[in-house]
């Protein structure tokens, strides 16, 4: 991990909905090629923050730059330089694998030649050549998620946002998914990920834990475990999030 280039810079990010403060002065940086875990209980404000970082929502105040672009004025540029995938929204179930690839690659303006090249590569990588004309819905969940991730980074974005990408996936496929994440990070793509699996949190280079709209902790998993004098991330999380009511 090279700790020099900051791809996400967030200083005093505040987002209010009426009187409700969803994000309360968040400050953090994410470096190029880093796997950054973004944890927090349900309703802690994770989704709000991710939407802002993806250029889908304008912050109330604070200095935010994503992939070198301003989160107030350059949201269109931000969108061109990121990839996004979540458990709920991934691929079109009623399109085939190749159709999905072509569609997403097309959205990001890849040339026909590039699309062909990338989709061949992808299909080869996943050994899907006999299935490439099958509808997505015929694939097992784990495969869908792996494929969705690969498609989310098909345009080689600077950052990819993953919102609970592995929910409900079996343990082996979950680990294969993380192999893909590491591979992307090695290729220089910054990975910004949320998860409810605490063992996955430990795969991240650094973690932030949000509680009630604030970042309560931000460090490497090892340091957090040491700092809170516990054995694993699960306990760190419980210790921090316990303070609030469900």
């Amino acid at each position: 991990m090279v700790k020099k280039e900051k791809v996400i810079q967030v200083k005093n990010l505040v987002k209010k909905f009426g009187d409700f403060v969803a994000n309360d002065h968040l400050t953090f940086d994410v470096y190029k090629g880093e796997i950054f875990g973004f944890l927090g209980a349900n309703g802690a404000g994770k989704t709000t923050a991710i939407r802002i970082l993806c250029g889908l929502s304008i912050p109330t105040s604070g200095d935010i730059s994503v992939a070198g672009f301003d989160a107030y004025t350059q949201t269109e540029n931000i969108k061109k330089n990121i990839g996004y995938m979540s458990q709920k929204f991934s691929l079109y179930e009623d399109l085939t694998i190749t159709e999905n690839i072509k569609f997403y690659a097309g959205i990001y303006g890849l040339s026909d030649k590039e699309i062909k090249q990338k989709s061949d590569k992808l299909i080869q990588k996943f050994n899907l050549s006999d299935k490439k004309n099958k509808l997505i819905k015929s694939l097992p969940l784990g495969w869908k998620q792996k494929l969705a991730f690969s498609i989310a980074i098909i345009h080689n974005p600077k950052i990819v946002f993953l919102d609970e990408p592995t929910g409900g996936v079996d343990p082996i496929t979950r680990r294969q998914f993380w192999d893909l994440i590491y591979e992307a990070a090695d290729a220089g793509i910054t990975v910004f990920v949320t998860t409810h699996y605490m063992d996955e949190a430990e795969y991240c280079n650094r973690l932030s834990i949000m509680v009630d709209g604030k970042i309560e902790a931000l460090d490497t998993p090892e340091n957090l475990i040491k700092q809170y004098k516990v054995d694993n991330m699960d306990q760190v999380f419980l210790k921090l999030a316990r303070k609030t009511n469900a």
């Binding site: 927090g40 209980a41 349900n42 802690a44 609970e164 929910g167 409900g168 409810h196 605490m198 699960d234 999380f237 419980l238 999030a241 316990r242 609030t244 469900a246």
Partner: peptide, 14 residues
């Protein structure tokens, strides 16, 4: 049926 899916670690524990 999967009462704790998508629920954070604290709520799951409770």
């Amino acid at each position: 049926d999967e009462p704790t899916t998508g629920v954070d670690a604290v709520s799951r524990k409770e």
